[in-house]
Simulated assay, not measured.
Amino acid sequence: MCRYGMSHYKMHYVCLPCRVSAKYEWLPTREHRCPRCGAPMITAGFDFAAPPKRDESGWRALEATLNAGIKFLTCGCSGPGYRPRTSAQVRERRAAAERLGIPEEAALTRAEPWDS
């Protein structure tokens, strides 16, 4: 049975400018605000793990991933799959997406984006 179907879990939310993540109840009609700046937070998913605050490359990769519409969501049986952890990995996958003619979202979720 899927882990998230058996119990109630909180969703992870992220404020990219402040580099803050928090867990709140997931309500589709509610907008969660950053506790530091008050800006709306982005829904990251149940399986999200924030990079350290001082990891510039990790936060840039996270920003590219979330802005592409990719979330860290699964049913809890397995992890969310591949997600880039550095800005170099994001650049590599964006170049592969352009070269192969695939959507950026698809390239960012592939461990090996150059394979079709």
Rank of each mutant, 00 (worst) to 15 (best):
S116L: 15
S21T: 12
M11D: 07
R33C: 12
M1N: 09
T43K: 14
P52V: 11
S7E: 13
G5A: 10
A97L: 04
S7V: 10
Q89M: 14
T109I: 12
R54A: 12
V90G: 03
A44G: 08
D55N: 15
R99A: 15
A106V: 15
K71D: 06
Q89F: 05
P40M: 08
Y13D: 05
A107R: 00
E105K: 15
P28L: 07
H12D: 06
E63T: 15
A22G: 09
L16F: 02
G76C: 09
G69L: 05
A107L: 01
F72E: 01
A22S: 11
E98C: 04
Q89H: 08
A22W: 01
C75K: 03
G58L: 04
P28A: 08
G101H: 03
G38A: 13
R93S: 14
E25L: 14
W114T: 14
R60H: 07
F46I: 13
N67H: 12
P113G: 11
P84G: 11
C37M: 05
E104G: 06
R91M: 11
A95K: 05
S21W: 06
A106L: 14
L100C: 09
R110Y: 04
G81F: 03
P35T: 13
C15Q: 01
W59I: 13
K23T: 11
E63M: 07
A96F: 01
K10T: 05
E112A: 12
I70Y: 01
T74W: 02
A49C: 09
A61Q: 01
M1C: 09
F46V: 12
P84C: 10
R33A: 15
Y24S: 03
R19Y: 05
H8S: 13
L62S: 08
G81Q: 02
R30T: 15
A97G: 07
K71H: 09
R30I: 14
A106C: 06
P52H: 07
S116I: 13
C34G: 09
L62A: 07
A39I: 04
A49N: 08
S57N: 04
